[in-house]
Design a protein around this nucleic acid. Structure first.
Lengths: 233, 233
DNA sequence: GTATCGCCGTATCGACGCTACACCAGGTAA
DNA sequence: TTACCTGGTGTAGCGTCGATACGGCGATAC
């Protein structure tokens, strides 16, 4: 964690900035503190990075390198959907372990966005969904599935960071919900009456408001009867 | 848009700060600029808010007031799941219209978190999922469903903001995926073979790796035959 | 030897968040 | 009227921040 790999001044500046960011996630950091930690004055820092944003960009790229490094070492399980699962969990784990990096990578709003760094992980995810599509496992286009997974994955991770409260159960629930959505399958036993209820409720214009409400009440009572019969089943 | 409702100095300071934030989303703003816009010096601002964070908190609370105001004026459709849908869309729309506010409200990492402001909208959502649970529409506990919806909703909104690229299709896809997850239903026609594939692939430990792979290949070919009825590739 | 270039320090700039202090309304009590 | 108190406001200044102009140093190239 505290290693400084590479003894170049540039690398030491990046490492020092990374440690400062990791030490106080979400907080701003001072360029002078970075310079002091390395034993260098500010013009040196500006010689390498040009601006504070330049340093941050370099740190973010470093963060992506670390992330991708520990992600590539994970290998494939053979099943693309399973790979998406483990990729999801690795994504969340990295975010919770490096909240400072993560918020910089995925939480920062930049007028002139810089997606070239983010493109690498999303490219990996696109590769996974593309492979899943080749195997006929997806119910939606590959790119759409990748975007769906990515946005939900980022949302779960960012939320856990801002609340400072990990919630593996929630992460797993959202993950399985997303996978069910892109594969077009339902994990749990699907009650056909429940499915019908949702279909009817989602399109109240077809039958009209009153008829929809009436039909819904009937269906709800029907499902209740079927569920509440312990012995008759 | 440029209205200053309330002529008190405090309200005018909040409005000025809100306009500056809205003018440059994601950017930092200067307290001196706020004071200049109101025609007041800094000690006055500090008299009311104590610190910059105090001003930001007041602005965020103001943002939540605006958000909840335009949300409460929406009313209920009668169906709790439909209400969750429209609440989702209103949430996304507010975020895209007020990216500066939104990132402050949901994107900021604070060591000592301040969830008391965020608690109001999530309380509304909890009310919706509780009502859905009363109607027997949920397949998961009410609180878990609310957390699931909220985290995905924030994720979709924040992602569209940071990418500066609205994607209603993605928002709708994630929304329906989430609703399907919490209601335990699948929207699309569920191919039983596809469902079986996902069940088997999700639990490779039951049969062992080799047997699982073999079974998967058979199931995949079976589904392929059923799908590609007219001719095989 | 000297000229060029990469790296780095000295000194300084303007803008920032923040604060000590004095001022001046206005209301209250004597 | 006079005295006092309280709350909003201005003047002036603190320390720190990001950023920059300028010059010095050593090493390599010719």
């Amino acid at each position: 964690m505290t290693e400084h790999e590479g003894s170049g001044t540039r690398e030491r500046l990046i490492s020092a900035a990374a440690e400062l960011i990791a030490a106080s996630p979400g907080e701003d950091f001072s360029l002078r503190a970075v310079c002091d930690a390395v034993g260098v004055k500010m013009p040196t820092l500006y010689h390498f990075f040009g601006s504070k944003q330049g340093l941050i960009d370099a740190v973010v790229e470093h963060g992506f390198d670390v992330y991708l490094g520990q992600k590539e070492s994970m290998g494939s399980s053979g099943d693309p959907i399973q790979d998406i699962r483990s990729g999801w969990d690795a994504h969340v784990a990295f975010g919770l372990e490096n909240p400072g990096f993560y918020t910089l990578m995925y939480g920062k709003v930049r007028p002139g966005y810089s997606p070239e760094a983010q493109s690498r992980p999303s490219e990996i995810l696109r590769g996974l969904t593309a492979r899943a599509a080749e195997h006929g496992r997806l119910a939606v286009p590959s790119d759409q599935a990748a975007a769906h997974v990515l946005v939900a994955n980022i949302g779960v991770t960012l939320r856990q960071i801002v609340l400072a409260q990990p919630d593996p159960e929630l992460s797993a629930a959202v993950r399985e919900g997303v996978i069910a959505a892109i594969t077009g399958t339902a994990r749990d036993s699907t009650d056909p009456v429940a499915a019908t209820i949702e279909i009817v409720a989602a399109a109240p214009d077809v039958l009209g408001e009153a008829e929809t409400a009436l039909l819904l009440s009937w269906l709800t009572r029907l499902r209740g009867d079927r569920r509440d019969e312990p012995g008759s089943r």
